[in-house]
Nucleic acid binder design. Sequence first.
DNA 1: CTACATACACAACAGTTCGTTGTGGCACGC
DNA 2: GCGTGCCACAACGAACTGTTGTGTATGTAG
Lengths: 315, 315
Amino acid sequence: MDLKAVRTFVAVAETGQFQKAAVDLSLTQQAVSKRIGALEGELGVRLFTRTARGAVLTIDGQAFLPHARALVQAEERAAASVRPGSRALRVDVVGRRLATAGLLRDFHRAHPAITLDVVTLSDADEAVAAVRAGAIDAAFRAVTRPGGQLPDDVRATPVFDEPLQLCVGPAHRFAAAPAVTPAQLAGHRIWMPGAAPGTEWRAYYDDLAAAFGLTLDTIGPDFGIEALLDALADSATLATFFGRRTPLVWPDGHDLRRIPIHGPTPVYPHSLLWRGDNPHPGLTALRDHLASLPVDHSDTETWRPSWAQRRTPPG
Amino acid sequence: MDLKAVRTFVAVAETGQFQKAAVDLSLTQQAVSKRIGALEGELGVRLFTRTARGAVLTIDGQAFLPHARALVQAEERAAASVRPGSRALRVDVVGRRLATAGLLRDFHRAHPAITLDVVTLSDADEAVAAVRAGAIDAAFRAVTRPGGQLPDDVRATPVFDEPLQLCVGPAHRFAAAPAVTPAQLAGHRIWMPGAAPGTEWRAYYDDLAAAFGLTLDTIGPDFGIEALLDALADSATLATFFGRRTPLVWPDGHDLRRIPIHGPTPVYPHSLLWRGDNPHPGLTALRDHLASLPVDHSDTETWRPSWAQRRTPPG
DNA sequence: CTACATACACAACAGTTCGTTGTGGCACGC
DNA sequence: GCGTGCCACAACGAACTGTTGTGTATGTAG
């Protein structure tokens, strides 16, 4: 389907005449006639009934019109998504295993007028570079080191400490356990496929494994969360970590158990990175939204890496 | 923007290689390269970083990808909307002045899996012909005449009697009235632009005007509901009728009053038309949905044209 | 009733685009 | 060091797109 033809169709439907649509589009009437004819031929349906005073939509044309408008609109949005200067708020999140995607969805519900584009970069360093270059407007990463290791123009705030849970299949040893301690997991295999060395979340899990003697298994490429859940459900020894609030949409057909971890509870320290002089209005709204989130104090005893900074309550 | 290029972009993003995408699309690698290059040139942004082992999405490419998918999906829906045999449920409604559009929206909420296309035909006769020809699957019209004037294969059921209200601007004589009777409206100008002779709703308003001595003003083309509301808001003499439950989305910026009508309350008799042997599954769902609507008995004294049949309560 | 104006469709031609073949450069692995 | 896989550039032929010119039908004015 040719988008030029679709736009022409909309123009004819709005003006009611091939002639006027041709003037609007800076074309000849014959070109408009050809485009409409080609579109009709492709769809196998007549879109207009031609009269001596113009063109009237057929029933099929009426049904097609809103879809044509949607198509033109989608095209405009697609182009706007990469238009430098006036594009949507572009945010980097780690993936679907942690709650940041859900946070963004909440933000989108609270501010539907702000269009969002979600991207995923390879690691925190690339995210920092992208934030610095203006390629993205914000990044959810765990880089809240106390020292001034970030470039001066990049700001970071801890926004959210996400408690981790153990996720196992029904045949796993801890499947029926009400809760586990990190010490109980010593020696157990924790499967985190796709955790490439050099990424900041790999560093987090490495620290976690070292602190409690876990065996971290990062072998194998990441085939997506569905494949991971499939593998977990069928295994008696595999286990993995998930954030407590995620995935928000749990795929059906997996008889998986989520086991809370206490004494201490490992928490993943999400931070927001942004460039101080980024004028995007959506960025301010996002920061305000995150700052207004309540701090969860339900876990009295928590563990985080030495380089992670605790979020200070607002006010 | 070229939709072929967009589809090519999605294919490359999914396979990770120009080469494989070319095979999938039955093209040469060079053609894929050209298409992507043209798309990048049009957007002014680089979408892939080319490596010796394939192509990786840039940040802009990541942001563009969901929009590209949406674009392809919109194209597929647009084509499906006119595909004979397997198209969406196509329903004819009178316009935005009465509640039928809202009914359809409720139906869509109750059955989101059933895709709907809403069209508007000129009058009931054309709607009957279109239902008969299979061009549309159902029509909301007021044609429930007791006699067998409908073709044998077209069925009709009264579904909904919509009470009318008077709609006036703040300067109108009845602007502050809590309610009016039809008799009070005798001699007043009721503006119904676009009510062309020969349509069934024109016949309804003609009957209504004749029964109570109203002056029906149908002069002027229908420029849409917004223009009508603009004109009403500025006039001290113009008034018009609206259904009580419509328009559901009342445009802002109009200081308009809706005055109930009692003694009797004119009601507009909506019926559903469909062809008895139409196998569309959505049609059955629509009829069931309408049959399950509660019958409104709050208006004890109602008026309808002599040719309109009252809806019988379900059961 | 004739003459004109309007609106759309068909035909022929020119300019451009699009995809193919052929070729070269670059990175990775044996 | 050389082969292999992947992508970009160049040239050519085919297909497409838009323009001009013309025909036909319908509604309107004199």
